[in-house]
Design a protein around this nucleic acid. Structure first.
Lengths: 126, 126
DNA sequence: TAAACATATGAATAGTTGTTCATATGAAAA
DNA sequence: TTTTCATATGAACAACTATTCATATGTTTA
């Protein structure tokens, strides 16, 4: 966050900071702004989709529930890497799991995930 | 990517690598896998949403078209930071712009963006 | 109980990314 | 044409993140 002294300095330098704005627009949108925290959470949520390993995991899980080794095999990656990423996906509630003996089966936790993946695919294939 | 020597070593060590997999599941899903490149593109696309500054920009643009300084003012951030991020959003075709004199007005480039934002919001508010 | 094994995790490292600072570009006004 | 100003951009730095390696955990089988 910038302090006032710096802002005044920039204004004096002719930089736009907060002066040459369209006040009507800004005020209107300012009122409609969600809580800061909601937008932070939203970014955290989407960050999960922004890694190719996790996208691949989500994709394969959209096809079938699977154990860690199945995923590692499909993606040709180490067990540890997959496990670390599954932890992230678990924490953000994008996947759920069930235990069966030594094996842990993972699957997508709800339908939003598939919707979001599908919308993304639509966008990039245009 | 791992080489065969390393994989053999790990298997010899008793690590799961590609051995204790459920072959039926893996083979079925393997056939349904999209192009590697498509999944990489998808991750790149979602990476855009995974930053709070960019999420905020997308949100305010969903309310109204706006110039760079309007956004900087709303988000209380420097003009340069916003401009850098708008470039990223432009490159990924998430925003479009029109020029009016010295001012450049930005807006969302299509409906998928709002749908994705909305799905994300639904997910986190559950 | 001991051995085997699927998964989880802490530490370290290499690669990536967002912001700032300084400056450039290009359009409009003087 | 010179100045003003909104926006763009390159370089540098700090912060973050994904993978690997080594090892731990907890469940099953011998």
């Amino acid at each position: 966050m910038k302090d006032l002294v710096k802002i005044e300095q920039e204004v004096a330098d002719g930089v736009c900071e907060f002066i040459h704005v369209h006040e009507d627009i800004v005020k209107k949108v300012e009122k409609a702004m969600p809580e800061e925290q909601e937008l932070l959470d939203l970014a955290e949520f989407f960050k999960i989709f922004g890694d190719s390993t996790r996208i691949k995991i989500l994709y394969v899980l959209s096809q079938s529930e699977m154990c860690v080794c199945d995923i590692a095999s499909l993606l040709m990656m180490g067990q540890s890497a997959i496990s670390h990423q599954l932890r992230v996906l678990k924490q953000m509630r994008l996947v759920k799991f069930r235990r069966e003996g030594k094996t842990v089966f993972y699957s997508l936790s709800d339908g939003h995930i598939q919707t979001i993946l599908a919308q993304g695919m639509e966008h990039i294939s245009e």
